[in-house]
Computed example of a mutant assay.
Amino acid sequence: MPVVRLLREQTLGETRWVALDARARPAALYLDRPHDAARRAIVGERLNARIRRLDSGLGGAFADLGAKGEAFLRIKPGETLTEGAAVSVSVVTEARRNKLPRVRLASDTPDTNSGAALWRASLNGGAAAEIEERPAGDAGIRSAFEDALAPALTLAGGGRLQVERTEALVAADIDTAGRISRGTRAAGALAINAEAAEALARQMLLRGWGGLAVLDCVAPLDKAAGNRIRTAFLEAFRDLSARQVKALAPSAFGLMEISADWQLTPLSERLQDGAGRPTAETLALEGLRQLEAAARENRMGRLMLSLPPDSFAWLQSAGLNAEPHLAQTYGARLMIQPGQTLEPEVKPAA
């Protein structure tokens, strides 16, 4: 089902988007942090670059993007570049774990979409979908983002899909525990495999994943069932997104291989550190979100946000000028201080 609605939660330092299908299910997520635009190459944006080093073995060049770091530029047949040359490029793929952003030579026609606009345009129905503004701390948006970081999800018909992104690929495994199947074993296997394939397609879009993915299907499988599972995945993915994707029918070992274009930095890399914990930036922005939500609920009281020390330090160095900006909307009654807690905490101010 194509995207029909877009939820947008705008808070100080961060805007979160949730795309919903016709059944009000989250279909894709986008995270916009304007303060880091100066240091991140954002998909779709046009940048001035300089060719730092040509690499014929890789078929491209490494380009210096200034404050945004380095990117890899694929050189197409007929394109001639020299080291040190100044070029204009467009960002095709954002950076991800151990991978540079990828850029292409910009055309003479300026790009019109970048960031959230390009993300919307890449979703079927996204450009025309109605935008619904949601208040800080909206439960639906919070739930969608939390679910997209979870290692497993419950399938509607019972059972669970375990998903994990490794260095090489996305691995997905089906757990049938708790699922009640009717009919033959083959019919039950087909039902849960097809449901899991559809769920994996959605999870790849929600989490910002691309590259190689493998779904370990439940036996028994025959050729016809394998083709139906492949079709279930491709239809679910292509119904929502215009990104390029391919899939093979499950192998003799029950493994369905998938390849999808990368576009965004995976959501987990934006929100978590290498150990899977929220970064200092994430906790600081979560605290600001909680503070705004509390200020809306308590329209007169003075409120204090306590942040973990490293999150408070990040906020001080980020240049958001949080208290003055918040005062413009809620009055000079919101304060922020370092605390001893591991999580943000909002309380009435003394």
Rank of each mutant, 00 (worst) to 15 (best):
R5S: 12
R5A: 13
Q10E: 15
T11E: 10
T11Y: 06
L12Y: 12
L12R: 11
G13V: 10
E14L: 11
R16F: 06
V18M: 10
L20I: 09
R23V: 10
P26N: 10
R33L: 12
P34H: 11
H35C: 14
R40G: 00
G44D: 07
E45T: 04
R52S: 09
L54K: 06
L54F: 09
S56P: 10
G57S: 12
G57T: 09
G60M: 08
G60E: 09
A63N: 00
D64F: 05
D64K: 03
L65N: 11
A67T: 11
K68I: 05
G69H: 02
E70W: 06
L73W: 02
L73K: 00
R74K: 13
K76D: 14
L81A: 10
S88A: 14
V91E: 01
R102C: 03
R104N: 09
A106Q: 10
T109M: 11
P110Q: 04
D111V: 12
T112Q: 13
T112F: 05
G115Q: 03
G115H: 04
W119E: 02
R120P: 01
A129G: 01
E130A: 13
E132G: 01
A136K: 07
G137F: 07
S143M: 11
L149Q: 07
T154K: 13
L155M: 15
G157Q: 15
E164N: 08
L169E: 06
V170I: 14
A172F: 02
T176L: 06
A177R: 11
R182V: 13
R185P: 09
A187G: 06
G188D: 08
A189I: 04
L190A: 15
A191Y: 03
A191R: 11
N193A: 06
A197Q: 00
A201V: 02
Q203P: 06
L205Y: 04
V214P: 02
V214I: 15
L215H: 02
L215A: 04
C217Q: 01
A219P: 15
A225R: 01
I229Q: 05
R230G: 05
T231G: 11
A232F: 04
E235L: 05
E235W: 00
F237M: 01
R238A: 04
D239Y: 00
L240G: 00
S241M: 00
A242H: 14
A247S: 04
P250W: 00
S251Y: 11
E257N: 09
A260Q: 03
P266A: 09
E269K: 08
G274F: 10
A275F: 14
G276F: 12
A280D: 10
L285P: 02
E286F: 00
L288E: 03
L288K: 03
L288R: 05
L291W: 07
E292Y: 06
A294T: 14
A294D: 13
A295D: 07
N298D: 13
R302Q: 15
L303M: 14
M304P: 01
L305I: 10
L307C: 07
F312C: 05
A313K: 07
L320I: 11
A322T: 07
P324V: 10
H325D: 12
A332I: 10
R333E: 08
M335A: 15
Q337L: 14
G339T: 08
L342T: 12
E345W: 04
V346K: 07
A349S: 15
